[in-house]
Design a protein around this nucleic acid. Structure first.
Lengths: 341, 341
DNA sequence: CTTTAAGGTGTTAGCGATAACATTGACAAA
DNA sequence: TTTGTCAATGTTATCGCTAACACCTTAAAG
């Protein structure tokens, strides 16, 4: 008792005041049966009067569950300023509110050999959202470790491996279809494509969709119409000149991310070309910046907040229902008509 | 033992394998003295071989400290998409890395009567970053509660009350000075000012600085040159027309936030006026969007990341040094010359 | 050769909570 | 009245860890 100067109200304090055993108080606090309504009422009142607040840490220790949602993302010094992620996190935060869980963030430092399971064990995490997984690591093992230890999780975005896991993504095929259809409706036939990060889940999907659909819509098929970016602003800036110097210049550019589209726009404008008159630009994501650039960027909206929320929902459902089959949710994208097309 | 299907490696497992008491293992894990180097070595090796990972929750429970940094912000459904906050959070995340703490987020729901202290007790938080406090609540009491219970904290941004507490902010006077001086150097004499949220710490400070300095620089002093916004994009859009319809139109606009500046720019452009030729626009903050708008926004950069990092630093220093005087750090702003001026 | 000090190590008691199991007591049936 | 039953409580062990303290070495001092 000397060790701690001050100690806050515990179930034992309440028990003493109410003249019952602390286990009874525990039953009341957890809303379990086997306590008479009268006593329950009394204990609740005392707890309230004393300003009792359960100690989540002690609960975690005994139950091996932490009442948190852990978001784990790869080590990236600028993770938080990529608004794309932020909008997802906002959705996750809303879900936390809904399920009454606290939100924790962890960055996974590959170089230190940290694993998803280690983090979960260290902090008694029982629910994890795995963001933007780095496919250079052995994720099958990660998944196995998590499963073996009763940790529920969802991937954001789509998980590429063969295991059936919860994951949430946008319907890329549909997104690309909407984008290309809109460009086609505006009379474009020659469309340059800036592809996204080939090591991600979304990059290749969008590239394939572009390839397949541009045939369907009767667009020009030259290989040189596709350049390889990595979703970043810089890659858009880097690759755009290649498209501008083609003998036959495309009349529209479709970038697999808004950041690349914005980078490309900068190059186009710096060449004295007008958007959309000389070249139309279409993005993908609808990140915050899309509305602010000039001209504002026509793009495909990913329901990012909803994606974050659903990811938590799925993990919770897995947790509550043994028979729930892990699934991949592909949410519907939407065309945001603005000025760049 | 039946209760839990699987249990992970604990110090007792290590102790058994090493043939010592678990308390000895604890000493080793905490890098404390009274263990011979040879034994320490041996235990460390065994721990490593067995893949031991300390259970932070059990540690928290006994030590009443959670090894986390808790960021508490007021209930706001869009908190995470305000990039201003995000950049700060990025700094906080970096500091967490540095101090080897996990990052937790809590939104404080006034309506449910939650208090900062309650959150800290519930989760055994010992270090808290209080963001954007809502001055309609009795913060003196919050501060007292936290102090009484040995919880260390910093405010972001500046704390307005009389108590001496850790807080980090930008030097608003200096920021406004830099902005106005630059405008003066470009020959502006009549400058419209869009003030920020009067219930915040930064809003009134910037307004006062504007008033004092515009006298010093010999700018026009009409009251009608100042309109009242609240930092948001919408308020910029709402207030700008008032400045445009003045009999004598200002040649430059200084907004107390980038969001308001961007809102103002939209109005100016919609009137067919050119920026900066007809009207120059100066922002404050240097949020992400400032670089993307057209023309790009000249603004005063707040070192947001650094602010987040310093806030954690201060709280940690308070924790480690009993004699450390709580202080307010005012970081230096910086002019970001772009195209809008 | 015994005493003493100090460094190592083990023992034990919690932290605040949950949960298995034991016990009590009230009421109905025998 | 006696017994049985089941709901309502109490008792106790434990989660993984830390820390106070007791104990036991060993080596230097007497």
């Amino acid at each position: 008792m000397k060790r701690f100067e001050k100690t806050s109200i515990t179930i034992k304090d309440i028990a003493k005041k109410a003249g019952v055993a602390h286990s009874t108080v525990s039953l009341v606090m957890n809303d379990r049966e086997h306590v008479s309504p009268k006593l329950r009422e009394k204990i609740l009142k005392i707890a309230n009067d004393m300003g009792y607040m359960p100690n989540m840490v002690a609960r975690s220790l005994i139950s091996k569950k932490s009442s948190t949602v852990a978001v784990v993302f790869p080590e990236n010094p600028h993770f938080f300023t990529i608004t794309y992620f932020l909008m997802i996190i906002e959705g996750i935060q809303n879900a936390c509110k809904k399920y009454n869980r606290a939100l924790m963030f962890f960055s996974l430092d590959q170089t230190k050999g940290e694993s998803y399971y280690q983090i979960s064990r260290k902090w008694l995490i029982d629910l994890m959202i795995i963001m933007n997984v780095d496919y250079t690591r052995d994720i099958s093992k990660d998944i196995q470790d998590l499963r073996d230890n009763g940790i529920y999780f969802s991937f954001l975005t789509k998980y590429l491996g063969k295991e059936k896991v919860n994951s949430v993504c946008v319907d890329n095929l549909e997104g690309v279809r909407i984008a290309l259809e809109y460009l086609a409706s505006q009379g474009h036939k020659r469309i340059g494509f800036i592809a996204g990060n080939p090591n991600s889940a979304d990059g290749p999907e969008r590239s394939q969709a572009y390839k397949a659909l541009s045939k369907k819509y009767g667009f020009d098929q030259d290989d040189e119409l596709t350049v390889q970016g990595d979703f970043t602003f810089e890659s858009g800036e880097r690759e755009m000149p290649k498209l501008l110097t083609l003998k036959k210049r495309p009349t529209a550019i479709f970038a697999a991310s808004d950041y690349m589209a914005i980078g490309a726009m900068r190059v186009i404008k710096s060449q004295g070309l007008s958007i959309p008159k000389d070249i139309a630009v279409m993005g993908f994501d609808n990140t915050l910046e899309a509305a602010y650039v000039e001209p504002s960027l026509t793009t495909i909206r990913q329901p990012l907040q909803e994606m974050g929320e659903k990811a938590v929902d799925l993990a919770i459902r897995s947790m509550n229902d043994e028979n729930f089959e892990p699934q991949t949710l592909a949410l519907k994208p939407e065309l945001m008509k603005r000025q760049s097309c």
